[in-house]
Write a protein that binds this DNA or RNA. Sequence first.
DNA 1: GTGAAAGCGCTAACAC
DNA 2: GTGTTAGCGCTTTCAC
Lengths: 337, 337
Amino acid sequence: MSVTIRDVARASGVHISTVSRTFSAPHLVNSNTRSRVLACAEQLGYRPNRAARALITGRTYNIGLIVADIANPFFPPLIKAAESQARKHDHHIFVADTNEDPAVEEELVRALAKQVDGVLVVSPRMSNALIEQLSHEVPLAVVNRQIAGIPGVVMDVAQGARLAIEHLLSLGHTDIALVSGPRGSWTSREIRRSASAAARHKLTVIGPNPPTEVGGLAVAEEVLRAGATAVLAYNDLMAIGLIEGLIAAGARVPQDVSVVGIDDIMLSRLTRPKLTTVATPTAAAGRAAVDMLLALGDQQGDDRRTTAHVHLQTELVIRDSTGPGPGPHSAPGGVAS
Amino acid sequence: MSVTIRDVARASGVHISTVSRTFSAPHLVNSNTRSRVLACAEQLGYRPNRAARALITGRTYNIGLIVADIANPFFPPLIKAAESQARKHDHHIFVADTNEDPAVEEELVRALAKQVDGVLVVSPRMSNALIEQLSHEVPLAVVNRQIAGIPGVVMDVAQGARLAIEHLLSLGHTDIALVSGPRGSWTSREIRRSASAAARHKLTVIGPNPPTEVGGLAVAEEVLRAGATAVLAYNDLMAIGLIEGLIAAGARVPQDVSVVGIDDIMLSRLTRPKLTTVATPTAAAGRAAVDMLLALGDQQGDDRRTTAHVHLQTELVIRDSTGPGPGPHSAPGGVAS
DNA sequence: GTGAAAGCGCTAACAC
DNA sequence: GTGTTAGCGCTTTCAC
């Protein structure tokens, strides 16, 4: 039904292998022949069948991108950047959604393995050991997880969390809550580790929670019960949900409770109060991860070089959801200075 | 490198064709043999190579999804629903982003054609004629465009736009502006057509514009210059940008200008003022479109049945960005009743 | 119910 | 520089 290499060969009066070479190794073909073949191909609307080609070469020119939740606003900019970068290198991308389920992650990696040159797993929920194992079945890179021997790009949320906590401390907050993310999230553990280290006072950890608006909303009461005057949330979506919940419960943000998110998704500039948050470079991460994956494929068979790791800086963006806390200077009966 | 049908055949002491049948036509194989083969396959970690299979059967179990902008919040819920529905039918999906460029759309459809069972083009920007032509090269369905002979699902934005305009009229607005969307958008034309018909008074059309927050922000001045007291925007993102622009220009929303969006993206509930908008069922559209595409593939070779069209209802969601206009009842010097 | 053989569209030695 | 041949992993006649 579709036009094949054979049709082009017939039309241009050469053998199919010459047509093949015209497309896969043009320099090996006489320039006259080449233009004739090209002309015929063009006219017939011939397009090489990549799947057939891959059967021989082993290169599919596809990559797999596995994310926890396409509709979570954190991911689309990353997906877009990855797709764009992939296409720059003439690759197409499969996108798959795991719904935060580690079992689905594993299944998807295996299901895609044969059709791709590599798989990118973003914010994986599965264990390091499993990732390690899967990386033997298919070239694999990871975003938001640091694993020895597995190429990956991480955003430095530890640094970001530290900045966020320091910001809250400097505002005079002493009772800080950390609303953590989903079980299995490396990012969530990093945030917790770093925030705990940075908080000189009490740090109440609430979680794990689903990384969604609803997840944030659901813990509002608990935050208030804990007596926290400031909160660092696992991501912006949760922070926004939390703010909704706090307001619904009668608390004002930031007058009664300060809230900091992480990611700086588009939403964060647009909600009221505008969210103070830690900006993570998601588009850059998507691009870097694709580059990494493609590089992995190129060094085929080499004695494995030192696996690359990319570390991206994060940045605190102070907006309107954080304000002064009941610190030493504002204690009841304090001196007006 | 990878385990093939041949390895399984060797391990289970049968011919490769028996292994093949075990996976593609299990009923043709003796149940004892079958379980033996299955056991060996399992143990070796065998997975059929879909690309190789497709070479013969013509079915890839992949579908292509082409959208204008992955990072535009309108699309992710649709992509997620489509992916989920596709996977229910054991299909994987390629996602590609055209950056609103019709030429890229065309190129992507052709580039993906050989690797998929069908392509879904969402909110296409290319011409009907081109879509028609492409549909001969690969099974194709369309979202947000009505074309005779091409299966598609549309959201009834005409109905939505009418409801929105009627809502504004009932609030007493007489000078209404329509901020239209990108050139080539069927949805934008539909909205314009329907809004024009519904508006009994002046309707100032501003556009075409890029369907983004910036696109909305950019026309704020023009809206004010036009003297409009109410605006219907092509989508929520533009409406939100527009509101930002209006506020920056010193106008209050909804006191001075009412704004209605279209789509009801997640953001719309979270910005302040909360956006009045026309809710479009994007997830349902994604699912329906995938079903349609898969059905297309199944009726292979049939004398083409009447092509299906799905029409999804929309709904006006009244929130806080619309309010009373300077209608008859609120004219200066009017009677306090 | 199973094996043998041909072939999907293409590439990659190898001759000439 | 081009044709010949084998074969990637798999399905699908066709015998038996």
